[in-house]
């Protein structure tokens, strides 16, 4: 079965598609943790809220593309507001307090969407241009899934240039490795934090919008995805761009091929991958310099 090129290609594409979505969420979570030493479990809430905003936009304005433009911006605004109003205050209180507060945010977010949208799942229709299939070795593969992969690759490319070639990128990388020194150099680290938080939230929002037509929009979608995202961050290595890419690819492929090859262990396989990585490289595959043992 694996030798059938059409089947193999479809499963490779399925893996890539999942990896791209996971990457969009993982990169924000990872860099925020690396830079600020802040574990933001409410990252998934921003993903969910953006998906609901995208749902409202498509319902009332009838355009997926408008939703694609607006909802991630709304996600960034929500993320920034959350950071300035609440999360910044517990930044220095240690991981336990951070986890308690952000889990609280998860519950508030879930009940808020329940109150506004109800319990039933909602749907964002596929944009008409992308609702067809593309021929891959004689079998149709959904065009929209290519679009998700394309967006993921574009974001990876853009982030790579931003981190490696811009001044801000240099500050962020330096901040992850040694925050104290960056501050001594007279750089306003608070401003950098807010910017990074907003960009991370924007990408989580982007993941929410582009996943909505495939994975649906419903209360609880945030908790469902955040577990996988945390695994990606742990496997890839904290605070690292390359780690987030490698981790999301690894988990995307393990999850997809686990479902086909070991259907009875599908749930377990990703945890096995995580356990194996932790045994061999406890700090993750490609951690940023600060987290290297």
């Amino acid at each position: 079965m694996l030798l059938d090129p059409a089947f193999l290609a479809a499963q490779l594409l399925n893996s890539l598609q999942l990896a791209m979505l996971l990457f969009l969420l993982a990169i924000g979570l990872s860099v925020i943790f690396g830079l600020m030493n802040f574990l933001n479990l409410a990252h998934g809430t921003i993903y969910m809220l953006s998906a609901f905003i995208a749902y409202s936009v498509t319902q009332h304005l009838g355009s997926f593309w408008l939703a694609l433009a607006l909802a991630p911006l709304a996600g960034a605004a929500i993320g920034l507001a959350l950071f300035v109003v609440l999360l910044r205050r517990v930044e220095a209180s240690g991981h336990l307090v951070q986890v308690l507060v952000t889990v609280g945010v998860i519950y508030v977010g879930m009940d808020a969407v329940r109150m506004i949208y109800g319990d039933l799942p909602n749907d964002v229709p596929l944009p008409a241009v992308l609702s067809g299939t593309v021929d891959v070795f004689g079998l149709g593969y959904p065009a929209y899934r290519f679009f998700i992969i394309g967006i993921g690759l574009a974001v990876q490319l853009a982030l790579y240039f931003a981190l490696e070639r811009t001044r801000l990128g240099a500050v962020v990388r330096a901040g992850v490795d040694d925050r104290a020194t960056v501050e001594t150099l007279g750089i306003d680290i608070g401003r950098v934090f807010r910017l990074v938080f907003a960009i991370g939230a924007y990408l989580a929002g982007l993941a929410g919008v582009i996943s909505a037509p495939v994975f649906g929009v419903y209360p609880g979608m945030d908790v469902m995805i955040i577990v996988l995202v945390l695994i990606v961050v742990v496997v890839g290595g904290l605070g690292s761009f390359h780690g987030a890419i490698l981790g999301s690819l690894l988990i995307g492929f393990a999850d997809t091929f686990g479902k086909i090859l070991l259907p009875n262990f599908a749930m377990m396989l990703i945890y096995c991958v995580m356990a194996a990585v932790l045994v061999i490289r406890p700090e993750g595959l490609i951690p940023s310099r600060r987290f290297r043992a």
Partner: peptide, 10 residues
Amino acid sequence: TKDYGPYLSQ
């Protein structure tokens, strides 16, 4: 399970 793609392909 969020992605049924692998199952559908199979």
